[in-house]
Amino acid sequence: MHMADALVSPAVGMAMNAISVAAIVAAAANVKKDELAEKKVPIMGVAGALVFAGQMINFTIPATGSSGHIGGGILLAGLLGGVPAFLSIAAVLIIQCLFFADGGLLALGSNIFNLGVIPCLFVYPLIFKPLIKGNADYRRLPIASVAAVIVGLQLGALCVVLQTLFSGITALPFGTFAALMMPIHLAIGIVEGIVTAAVLCFVYKMRPEIIDGSARPAERPGGVSTKKLLIAFVVMTVVVGGALSLFVSANPDGLEWAIGKTTYKVLGEETELEAVGGIFDGAASLRDSVAFLPDYAFTSDPENAMGTSVSGIFGAAITFIFAGATGFVISRTKKRKKAVVNV
């Protein structure tokens, strides 16, 4: 479910990055207040590494013949508590993005939000904890884990759809994309929920204190309450989201593309928003002079569809060869220089 850089627009990517950075700062401040923070840090590190290593463990899903692997958000939250689990997941996502090309720097914020903020900071306190009722046992743990994992994955998948849509990179209509993503992630969620429940039950059997510690509501002595944290996040999301929507509408982006498509259908020709009413003209010219992204060539008119043509493609091919050759020449020269030095 990792978003890639190629699928997000700068506006969406940067806004999600801002939200995620704010979430990390708030969570780190919250963890630091805990007196046991120092002892928790190494455990958080191991937990993060475990999520990563756990993804390497393939297991067969009965009766299907396919294989799956564990995800992690709810599992870690059940062990460490929501906020520390979020920090671990964020660390893992950054490492995956930087070292394993999974996700990307621009899409990092989206990934941290979809896979970290949603399961650890929203779903865990709002669904897992109430279902456990501060008293974990073999009946409540499985129900809470399966429910929380499913809800978390569904929300995450929905966010992927929305982020891709707002970025305007794919031509998939919202309904189709959602209809594809949601059922797949429902199936994944059920399997992952069962595995999460199995792991949590095992840990509960061996070391009940680990689970109890994080699922008990009275866990945070004098720290920021979960409710306050949640409210802060909602406010933050609304503020940043508002700023984002301004930015998005001020820049020809996914939204405008969607609007362009719709008006195209209605009027039978491509009309832009500002062409409809004169009021927008001033805003549009201002926008064009400051816009970071000039209009995308979104149109079904084949002649100027991409501001390019066959010659453009050949040009691209030549560029590719030329770029490769440049690299080759540089490394050749460097090697030769080295050889000279060595002699």
Binding site: S9, A297, G307, T308
Partner: peptide, 11 residues
């Protein structure tokens, strides 16, 4: 790179 449009392959 991400700011380019959907068909801007050549650019």
């Amino acid at each position: 790179v991400a700011s380019f449009g959907r068909y801007d392959f050549a650019r």
